[in-house]
Amino acid sequence: MKPHQVKAPSSNEPSPDVPPQVRDVEESWEVVAAAERFSGRVISVRTDTVVMPDGGTADRDYAVHPGSVAVVALDDSGRVLLIRQYRHPMRRLLWELPAGLRDVPGEPLVACAARELAEEARYRARAWDTLVDVYTSPGMTDERIRIFLARDVAPIPEEEDSYVRRNEEIDMPVVWIPLAEAVDRVLTGMIHNSPAVAGILAAYAASADGFKGLRPADAPEA
């Protein structure tokens, strides 16, 4: 991995140069009307009429999403695992992190992530940390993604792999590339998938202190 000068932040050591209010906080403006416009297999689309600070109202359309998880899997050589998947809305084959929906009620997020790593990439990991939380497009959807860092990884033996892959999953090649090279490919416009971009850059930054500043795998979501 290339050397870098990123100073890993620590929640226990707030910077005196940054105002304490620079953090996302929960807030809910009054909704005076709501209408569902569409309901599909995964998402629905609704319009909320929201009261604005001046007392007026404005309609806000957004997609309601169950949420997702994604995994930055690193091997002992500092390489990151990427899969390639066809994304029909973009008409592109995108290099991505193993990821999936939070579609099992009550399933811990780290268990969901481990399941996706196994199903999509045929790998398992022994060490898990919370890497970063992302709102994918907060102006148009409530989808949130928790991205995990997975280490001490190993392939799942073929005889233990009983998952049946369908549709896009049938043709998803897996590659391992150096994390620094993945960063270069993000910054040069070769990797575009939003959780992949966030996860790769976050992992590179967090590697500055050997990932000591990361939250535990079961850290609560804000």
Rank of each mutant, 00 (worst) to 15 (best):
V31A: 01
P108S: 07
E96V: 06
P20F: 07
S77W: 00
D152E: 15
A121E: 00
S77K: 11
S68P: 01
A33K: 09
E107W: 02
D24Y: 14
T130G: 11
A154K: 01
T130H: 10
G67Q: 04
F148R: 00
A121K: 04
T130S: 14
R126T: 05
L93Q: 14
L74H: 05
D76Y: 05
P105T: 01
F38Y: 14
P105I: 06
G106Y: 08
D17W: 15
V31K: 11
L97R: 04
A113V: 10
D48E: 15
E27V: 13
S28N: 11
R23H: 12
R41K: 09
P98A: 14
L117M: 12
Q21S: 12
H88L: 12
M52L: 15
I43T: 15
P53E: 10
T141H: 05
A111F: 03
A63F: 13
R60N: 03
V64Q: 10
P138I: 04
E13P: 04
V80Y: 00
P19K: 08
V69W: 02
D76V: 08
H65K: 03
D133A: 04
L93W: 14
P98K: 00
W128F: 03
G55R: 09
A125P: 03
G55F: 12
H88S: 14
E13F: 06
S137W: 13
E116K: 04
R126A: 10
V22C: 11
